[in-house]
Amino acid sequence: MKKSNYSKSVIISVSIHALFIGLLLWGADFTFEHKQSVGNTIQATMVDPAMLNQQAQQIRQQRQAARDAEQARQDRLEQQTAALEKQRKAEAERLRQLQADKLNAEKATREAEKQRQLQQQQAAEAKVKAEAKAKAEAKAKAEAKAKAEAKAKADAKAKAEAQAKQDAALNDMFSGLEAENEQRGGAKGKHIADEVARYGTIYKQMIQQNLLVDQSFKGQKCQLTLRLSANGLVLNVSQLAGNDTLCRAAKSAVLQVSEFPMPDNPDVVKQLRVINLTVSP
C-alpha cells in the first residue's frame, strides 16, 4: 500500500513537471523571420543550456521534496497507526484484566459463601450433637443421683443408727466424768463449756470459708465427725448422715483447713478432740 501511494505521487509529480517544462518551452522566444527565402534556408533562436539545467535541477529538487514530504507523511501515518495499535492493545489488555479480576472476585465470593454455609451446617450439626449428648448426660446424671440418694439414705439411716448407739455408749462412758466435773465446781465446768462453744464457733467459720455452696444444697443437711490431734491436726473426718454431695463438699472444706487452733487448757482440748458437726447451708 505504501509503494502504490509512492508510485502515484511520483507519476503526478512527473506529469506536473512535464507540463511545467512544456509551458516554459511554449513561452520561449522562438522568432521566425519571414523573409524572402532564398532556396530552403531556416533560421532559429537557440535555448540557453544553463537555464535548462537550472530548471531541471529545480524539478529534481521539487521531486525530492515531494518524495521527502510523502515519506514524512507515511512515517507519521505509520507512527500514528502504531500508537493507535499500541493503545488498542493496551485497552484490550485492560479490559481483559478487568474481566479476569471480576471473574476472580465472583469466584472468591462463591467460595466464601460456600465455606460460610458449610461452617453453618457444621455448627448446626455440632449443636445438635452437643444438645443430644448433654441430654443423655443429664439423664444419666439424674439416674445416678437418684441411685446415689437412695443409697445415701440407706447408708445415712444405718450410720445414724450406729451413731446413736455410739453416742449412747459415749454418754455412758463419760457420764461419770461429767458428774465429777460438776462435783468439782460449776464455775470450772461452765468455763470449759464456754471455751468449747467459742472454739466450735471458730471452727465453723474456718470451715464455711472453704465450703463451696451450690443451689442444690438448699434445705440439705450433713452430719460429720471430726477427730483432731492435741495440736489441732485433722486426723479423720467421716460422714454420719445427710446429703452425700453436701457431705463431700463439707469434708473437702474441713481438709482444706487441715489444722485447727487449740486452746492451752488441756481440759478444753479433750473436749475438742472429737467434734460432731452439722452443716446446713
Score class of each variant (00 low, 15 high):
residue 51 M to V: 14
residue 202 I to Q: 10
residue 126 A to Y: 07
residue 217 F to E: 02
residue 38 V to C: 02
residue 135 K to I: 10
residue 58 Q to V: 11
residue 53 N to P: 02
residue 196 V to Q: 08
residue 59 I to N: 08
residue 105 A to H: 05
residue 115 Q to H: 08
residue 98 L to M: 11
residue 131 E to S: 07
residue 172 D to A: 15
residue 278 T to K: 11
residue 171 N to M: 06
residue 243 N to L: 05
residue 273 R to D: 00
residue 174 F to Q: 05
residue 17 H to W: 09
residue 206 M to S: 07
residue 113 E to W: 01
residue 181 N to E: 09
residue 161 E to T: 06
residue 92 A to K: 12
residue 105 A to M: 04
residue 136 A to I: 00
residue 269 V to Y: 07
residue 29 D to Y: 03
residue 53 N to R: 08
residue 142 A to E: 09
residue 171 N to H: 08
residue 225 T to K: 13
residue 65 A to W: 10
residue 191 H to C: 00
residue 176 G to T: 10
residue 98 L to N: 12
residue 147 K to L: 13
residue 19 L to H: 01
residue 43 Q to C: 01
residue 28 A to H: 12
residue 259 E to G: 02
residue 114 K to E: 14
residue 197 A to P: 01
residue 59 I to T: 13
residue 226 L to H: 05
residue 122 Q to P: 04
residue 76 R to V: 07
residue 279 V to C: 02
residue 237 V to E: 05
residue 2 K to Q: 12
residue 130 A to G: 03
residue 64 Q to H: 06
residue 212 L to M: 10
residue 34 H to P: 04
residue 262 M to Y: 06
residue 209 Q to C: 00
residue 13 S to L: 03
residue 242 G to V: 01
residue 222 C to I: 03
residue 107 K to F: 07
residue 150 A to I: 06
residue 9 S to Y: 02
residue 98 L to Q: 15
residue 14 V to I: 15
residue 134 A to H: 09
residue 163 Q to W: 11
residue 68 D to T: 12
residue 197 A to L: 10
residue 116 R to L: 12
residue 90 A to H: 10
residue 211 L to H: 00
residue 71 Q to P: 01
residue 224 L to G: 02
residue 129 K to P: 00
residue 109 T to V: 09
residue 73 R to G: 11
residue 124 A to M: 03
residue 17 H to D: 05
residue 206 M to C: 01
residue 182 E to I: 11
residue 153 K to F: 09
residue 53 N to L: 14
residue 66 A to E: 09
residue 138 A to D: 03
residue 150 A to D: 09
residue 102 K to S: 12
residue 249 A to L: 05
residue 15 S to V: 14
residue 234 V to Q: 03
residue 135 K to M: 09
residue 219 G to Y: 02
residue 229 S to N: 07
residue 22 G to C: 05
residue 263 P to N: 01
residue 139 K to M: 07
residue 27 G to E: 08
residue 10 V to I: 15
residue 36 Q to I: 12
residue 224 L to I: 03
residue 28 A to R: 06
residue 246 L to S: 07
residue 210 N to W: 08
residue 20 F to I: 12
residue 117 Q to K: 15
residue 105 A to R: 12
residue 93 E to A: 10
residue 13 S to I: 04
residue 41 T to F: 11
residue 64 Q to P: 00
residue 266 P to F: 06
residue 109 T to I: 09
residue 74 Q to M: 11
residue 156 A to F: 01
residue 71 Q to R: 07
residue 79 Q to K: 15
residue 113 E to T: 10
residue 208 Q to K: 12
residue 238 S to R: 00
residue 69 A to H: 08
residue 274 V to Q: 14
residue 76 R to A: 14
residue 136 A to F: 01
residue 163 Q to L: 05
residue 235 L to H: 06
residue 43 Q to E: 13
residue 57 Q to K: 08
residue 103 L to H: 06
residue 196 V to S: 04
residue 37 S to N: 13
residue 132 A to K: 13
residue 166 Q to G: 01
residue 200 G to R: 05
residue 264 D to Q: 11
residue 42 I to S: 11
residue 215 Q to I: 02
residue 26 W to C: 07
residue 277 L to E: 00
residue 254 V to C: 03
residue 123 A to F: 05
residue 164 A to M: 02
residue 97 Q to V: 06
residue 104 N to K: 14
residue 207 I to Y: 06
residue 42 I to Y: 12
residue 120 Q to F: 05
residue 108 A to K: 14
residue 29 D to R: 06
residue 280 S to Y: 01
residue 77 L to E: 15
